[in-house]
Design a protein around this nucleic acid. Structure first.
Lengths: 233, 233
DNA sequence: TAGATTGTTAATCGATTAACAATC
DNA sequence: TAGATTGTTAATCGATTAACAATC
């Protein structure tokens, strides 16, 4: 499932791809770096930051690999796509490598995020404290139900879905999170994309059809559970 | 990253594997069927059920594939691991195929699930209505904070983490969901495994070390966001 | 320097796709 | 029957690993 495979002129489905490890990267642009590599980088950053907090100043690829549970060769190979970050005989400076990968991923800034759907899940997302330290900030809230419009959550007013495109465009938001129910997900995605959003985190159990320049990643706990039962007894 | 690669006697890390599409299946047992195939099956079931609801009685692999956004060859290949489910010249009976895959995945029963961590996210999970129709039922709630112990959520009393192993064992629960904060996740996982749990859905941003017979799948929205920013502008 | 570990290439492994005979 | 589509094999593609020269 290479990018070129879905580089047609029509919107292409991305649910399975994103959910299952195939390429969820935007098609069209020919990315020389495999999306699977890009998706590993955040874990490297997280692990390096954890090491830094334990005052570990440097690690070898072998140590980092065993901490994460991958092979050392894979880590070195992944990093080699972007440059040279280590010292032979020594390993990697944890702070320098974390910062370097952070820059590659553009985590050296705070990204405003639009969140659509403020049901129980959406509220949990809106209130989640883990986004800010991770370079994301919920900057706009939307919902389809009149019941919630106008409510204030975390200092943000809940706006109607009809305003998604306008607000997202005005505020220059590039990232959207969808936590509406399945039947509304496609419509909401389209409003977001109309406003200029190019990255969507989708919690709705639905296949989003998006243009080739938009990246979609699925959060699909039900499917995850349903695949694990295969291995039970 | 085949199963055999991690079939050593020591617990093996699974975060990256599960999060990123490598094999999150239990090692040891030599599974002839690739985990990547198993992880696609729930999407097939979901899509087939959606078609059934639209009164579509049969589909070709080509139609199903274009609905999901994968190749028809992949669907036929995936199904061929388990048997013959279609009719040449005709396609697949949606009801029959959905039921067949459901049986393969053991979705033809209701699985009790233990949930540890009843913060905002945990409560959203506990109250989520999408599990029951998907063959799962939250059957026990646990939390580490005395503040929540004894509270009733959805008819279930929140019990202390110390009781996880006992209760899980007594009730024969095989599936656990972890939504505690990062520092407590490993400890909670160990209690679950002690009680006999063999499948863990992990929302904590932490690498769980588990024995080879335990399957882990990660739900990691922050990493998903952090990988998408790579493609922005 | 000697030892350790990186960065990189080639070999291996595994998953996807193309193609088509079988057959409904 | 003729047309359509499955089930399956072989070819292709891509990702991971092993190995080692470079070098700190």
């Amino acid at each position: 499932m290479s990018a070129s495979h879905r580089a047609g002129s029509l919107p292409t489905a991305t649910l399975l791809e994103a959910a299952l490890g195939a390429n969820g990267a935007p098609a069209g642009t020919d990315h020389q770096i495999p999306d699977i590599v890009i998706r590993r980088l955040p874990i490297y950053v997280r692990t390096l930051n954890a090491l830094r907090e334990q005052d570990v100043g440097s690690v070898s690829s072998e140590e980092l690999a065993s901490t994460i549970g991958v092979s050392a060769a894979q880590i070195r190979r992944d990093l080699s796509y972007f440059g040279k970050f280590g010292k032979q005989g020594k390993g990697y400076d944890t702070e320098y490598l974390a910062a370097s990968i952070g820059t590659i991923l553009r985590l050296d800034r705070l990204w405003p995020v639009a969140l659509a759907g403020v049901g129980k899940l959406g509220l949990a997302i809106a209130n989640y404290q883990g986004f800010a330290p991770s370079s994301f900030k919920i900057a706009a809230l939307f919902d389809g139900s009149p019941r919630h419009i106008g409510d204030i959550v975390n200092g943000l007013e809940i706006l109607p879905n009809e305003l998604i495109a306008d607000v997202v465009q005005r505020e220059g938001i590039k990232i959207g999170i969808i936590s509406v129910r399945a039947p509304y997900a496609q419509e909401v995605a389209e409003r977001m994309i109309e406003g200029g959003i190019e990255a969507i985190l989708n919690y709705a159990p639905v296949i989003l059809r998006v243009p080739a320049n938009v990246t979609v990643r699925e959060v699909d706990p039900v499917s995850a559970l349903q695949s694990m039962t295969y291995y039970l007894q």
